[in-house]
Design a protein around this nucleic acid. Structure first.
Lengths: 164, 164
DNA sequence: CAGTATACGACCAAATGGGTCCGGGATTCA
DNA sequence: TGAATCCCGGACCCATTTGGTCGTATACTG
């Protein structure tokens, strides 16, 4: 009621994944400090602290972050920001992502046995994953410090192939 | 309870969109018949008829299908299957698709004013849209009639660029 | 007119997602 | 040792979205 439905979203990633990416980006932008608490990061972006806490916990469990309890504790990237892909983050938070509601992974299609669209769309899915894998936290981070880089100066070009 | 959570999905398209794609594929595979009723298509795939009916109705309203009431009525593609992209179908059913929960389209970000990840991810979004646009209903359809084309015989190669 | 099919709005139940609460454990520092 | 921070993680809640049904009106065919 407060936010009128600007548009119907689809294929969107969850807010949690968004938050996770934002947090990692934040960490990548503050390499000096040994660790940042969940609350600090949450406050920096104005997102609910407890929610972010749990997201960071999951990222820690999957090995993307290092946590440290106690005073001056918090979270830190477990590796170079250049070596953490957006895909890893999203995958850690939202789980495996598939385009089609029923992908023939694991045990195949429970219902709708005759849905043959899957195979082509699975390719699309892999393409998306490829794109997401090619983007690192570092890519998300910098470009703001050198904020004026508007023209295609540091424009990184990625190429993705999709074959049906 | 009946279908254990095989995995957590994300970035997935809705079942309705799936159904829509399946239906169009079905129509593309039956070019002889002037029209197929919603029920026929639904039965062919074992999906709820009334639900599919509404999906087809929406696809009709957006101009992808032609409908015809009365006996031997039903739906038919309004143009060549080669000229209908998967994107159009998904867009018609699920609405505009964006990756980030808040894209700065329309009126910008309501909450989280400092979410800077958006711009890079918006590019990813456009990439996905590009991929989806490059896939036609025809692409989804055939490959089954000539079922044996396993080796890369008719492999269509698409190229997608993504620049951050 | 009878039968078939679309058109469409109202309604519903289950799943999902965002978010909170709370009772633990670590760790550091005084 | 004990207080202040901070991470850990399960239980719970609520709003929205989805998938799906029902019923009725309308259009077309024969």
């Amino acid at each position: 009621m407060r936010t009128e439905p600007v548009g119907y979203y689809m294929l969107k990633l969850t807010k949690k994944a968004d938050y996770g990416l934002m947090a990692l980006k934040y960490l990548a932008e503050h390499p000096e400090t040994p660790a940042q608490s969940a609350k600090d990061i949450a406050d920096a972006y104005g997102i609910p602290a407890q929610l972010l806490a749990k997201i960071l916990q999951r990222l820690t469990k999957t090995g993307l972050l290092r946590s440290h309890a106690g005073m001056n504790g918090g979270y830190a990237l477990s590796r170079d920001a250049r070596k953490i892909s957006a895909f890893e983050v999203i995958h850690a938070i939202d789980g495996p992502l598939f385009i089609t509601s029923c992908t023939k992974g694991a045990k195949g299609c429970d219902l709708t046995p005759s849905c043959t669209i899957k195979e082509p769309l699975a390719r699309v899915n892999e393409t998306i994953i490829g794109v997401l894998k090619s983007i690192s936290i570092y890519d998300l981070a910098d470009q703001e410090s050198g904020k004026a880089a508007v023209v295609g100066t540091t424009a990184v070009q990625r190429l993705v192939t999709l074959n049906l």
